[in-house]
């Protein structure tokens, strides 16, 4: 690995500016940790509730720095073959059959374990890229614990060993961003490898700006009322509190319905956009005196 990889950003402010340039509004916490992850060459683990902009952050860093985005979406049961690499067995078998009779086994073997038969998956892809890369490992908490061991290896040395071919080492460290909705705790070892960012709901000013960037036609006063109401909803004990994504959706809906004030009627008509569970709607309606 080249020791002197030039950093992506020159300052914390520059992070914020360039992210804003691609439509992502970063809090101080976000801008600072992105800057540090790049400077210290450490992966950034972003943990927080759904819909606060974790995935979007990785996309924004890629867009802002002109890096390619390589995404590993985790799910229950994901394994090495899906995360790292796999051999194309069908093709290998064809090759073996074709070579039978007029070629030594050694020659065949050397051939079927070569580049041509390799199916790289996101982790290997990210490590082999020569161009700047953002590696997004999304929803890490959904994967089984065993996958963390694999990740830990890859994120420690930025190299992957393929027994049949040898070791692949990154020529350029990717900017690695892991996300978790904390449905389970990740292992201490993996956490220690990373810088940690707990991304929570943005403060009202920031959220208003986010809504206005995403729904620019929305009147300022309405955006303000939306954000304030959503904050009140978040303070209630609900099964699923509304996230930034829901605030944005709410803004779009009001606009589409031609509603320009957030009074009780408007909320009654559109509450389903922000609260997805029937029981939450019932509860909020009662507590906020909508009935």
């Amino acid at each position: 690995m080249k020791a002197t990889q030039s950093p992506l950003f020159g300052s914390v402010d520059e992070v914020a500016e360039r992210l804003e340039g691609v439509g992502y509004l970063a809090s101080t916490a976000v801008a600072t940790t992105v800057y540090l992850a790049d400077r210290l060459g450490k992966p950034l683990l972003v943990e927080g509730p759904a819909g606060v902009g974790k995935t979007e952050l990785a996309k924004a860093v890629a867009a802002a720095t002109g890096s390619g985005l390589v995404r590993l979406q985790c799910y229950e049961g994901i394994d090495e073959a899906r995360a790292l690499y796999e051999w194309n067995h069908a093709k290998q078998l064809l090759r073996i059959t074709a070579g039978q009779g007029h070629e030594s086994w050694d020659a065949t073997r050397d051939d079927v374990f070569s580049e041509e038969f390799l199916l790289p998956r996101p982790l290997l892809t990210a490590i082999r890229r020569d161009d700047p890369t953002v590696l997004l490992i999304d929803e890490m908490d959904k994967a089984d614990v065993e996958v963390e061991g694999l990740l830990l290896e890859v994120l420690s040395d930025y190299q992957v060993s393929i027994p049949e071919m040898g070791t692949v080492t990154a020529t350029r460290k990717p900017f690695a961003l892991l996300t978790s909705n904390s449905t389970r705790e990740l292992s201490e070892a993996l956490k220690r490898r990373c810088l940690f960012l707990h991304l929570d709901f943005p403060d009202p000013d920031l959220e208003r700006k986010i809504v206005l960037t995403r729904v620019p036609e929305l009147p300022q006063a309405l955006a303000d009322a939306l954000v304030r109401t959503v904050r009140v909803l978040r303070a209630m004990e609900l099964r699923k509190v509304p996230s930034v994504a829901e605030t944005i959706d709410w803004g779009r809906t009001l606009l589409a319905l031609g509603l320009d004030t957030l009074d009780d009627d408007a909320v009654r008509q559109t509450l389903g956009v922000v609260l997805k569970h029937q029981s939450d709607q019932v509860k909020a309606s009662a507590e906020l005196r909508l009935n």
């Binding site: 109401t229 009140v232 009074d263 909320v267 909508l290």
Partner: peptide, 9 residues
């Protein structure tokens, strides 16, 4: 607006 809901919020 001065409805009950706005007031509660």
């Amino acid at each position: 607006p001065t409805d009950d809901f706005t007031d509660e919020v």
